[in-house]
């Protein structure tokens, strides 16, 4: 029966997740970089670069989670209990980070507390998103279509490495976003952060790329068997080339390109993980076909996505355009 529907839905979920990672990634990155700002005024500017957008960015998280439920209810019903604690902790961290956007401006004496909530919430959310990613890639114990592992199965060195990787990656996205949206001291500091962050991202991506085929045979087979290796070789090669370009753009003072280059790195990294796991949605046992919702549900929602998502993207672009340009220190909020 309609074998292609689950594949299309796998793609849609993938796009929603990468949209989330890139968009909320840069504003979580701002939070991660928050403690490194020297003055309160700089923190105001940093926060104002994302304040009109964060809520829309976070909505992609609901589309990713909700989309998984719509299209692959059986996968949703396995993944969420399996990664119970990381998901709950991530959501609570997002609670702190989200309310800090509003609370920080109303707070007087407790402002430093909400600075901390913003930074720590962003850091913890990013770290546990990495854990969730790692926990999924390394595989989930499934028996009779239900989660059958322990509550701490996810806590492995590999998942911790992924957690660190996502934190560093988001910090890089955040710092390059600041190059786009700010100038002066904030932008200078962002540039000085971006170069070591880029190096750290490269090292961590390399570690994950080596670890996964060594630890998981299915991933080694996917990448290194013939003829796959010839088709897939461009992925790491393009990643290496793009890394050099981002480094070069950072060194030569470009303002927009490092940000878009970093987005490219994220997309490539995500593509690599998708190649490693497809067609499994819950590695190593459940595929997109085994977990798919009833075809009428996938078809109805597909029409929803085809007609509504372009509209959504349209007005998102419109709002980014309204708030285009640099955010300067000392002006803005009244």
């Amino acid at each position: 029966m309609e074998w292609y529907l689950p594949v299309i839905w796998g793609l849609i979920i993938g796009v929603a997740v990468i949209m989330y990672v890139v968009l909320d990634g840069f504003d979580l990155g701002i939070g991660i970089l928050f403690p490194f700002a020297k003055e309160e005024k700089e923190r105001d500017v940093m926060m104002n670069t994302v304040a009109p957008f964060w809520d829309g960015n976070e909505t992609w998280l609901i589309l990713g989670g909700g989309g998984l439920w719509v299209a692959f209810p059986k996968a949703y019903a396995v993944v969420m209990p399996a990664l119970y604690l990381p998901v709950i902790i991530m959501l609570l961290a997002l609670v702190f980070r989200g309310v800090a956007f509003e609370f920080r401006w109303v707070a007087a004496s407790s402002r430093r507390l909400w600075n901390f909530a913003f930074a720590a919430g962003s850091l913890v959310a990013a770290f546990f998103q990495g854990i969730i990613l790692g926990g999924l890639v390394q595989g989930i114990t499934v028996k009779d279509g239900a989660f059958a592992g322990g509550p701490l199965d996810w806590a492995t060195p590999f998942a911790l490495l992924c957690g660190v990787g996502v934190v560093v990656g988001y910090a890089l996205l955040g710092s390059t976003w600041l190059l786009v949206k700010t100038e002066g001291a904030v932008a200078d500091r962002a540039r000085s952060h971006a170069i070591p962050l880029l190096l750290a991202v490269v090292v961590l991506m390399g570690l994950v790329s080596l670890w996964t085929p060594l630890a998981f045979d299915r991933i080694a087979t996917r990448w290194f068997s013939r003829p796959n290796i010839f088709f897939l070789a461009p992925v790491p090669i393009i990643t290496a080339g793009l890394t050099y370009l981002v480094w070069h753009w950072l060194k030569t003072g470009r303002e927009m390109l490092p940000f878009f280059g970093t987005i490219g790195l994220f997309v490539l990294g995500f593509l690599g993980l998708a190649i490693s796991t497809f067609p499994y949605l819950v590695p190593p046992s459940l595929t997109v076909w085994q977990t798919a919702a009833a075809p009428p549900s996938q078809i109805l929602m597909l029409f929803g996505v085809i007609f509504l998502l372009p509209v959504v993207l349209g007005y998102i672009v419109f709002v980014y355009w309204i708030f285009r340009g640099k955010v300067r220190e000392g002006e803005g909020y009244h």
Partner: peptide, 29 residues
């Protein structure tokens, strides 16, 4: 979630597409 997924989840999906994005994005303005 598994039992009602094919029926209830699309309603939540449409909530995201027709409401959440609309609210969150225009809230910025």
């Amino acid at each position: 979630a598994e039992f009602v997924g094919s029926v209830v989840a699309p309603l939540i999906g449409f909530e995201v597409l027709t409401a959440f994005f609309l609210e969150a994005t225009f809230l910025g303005i």
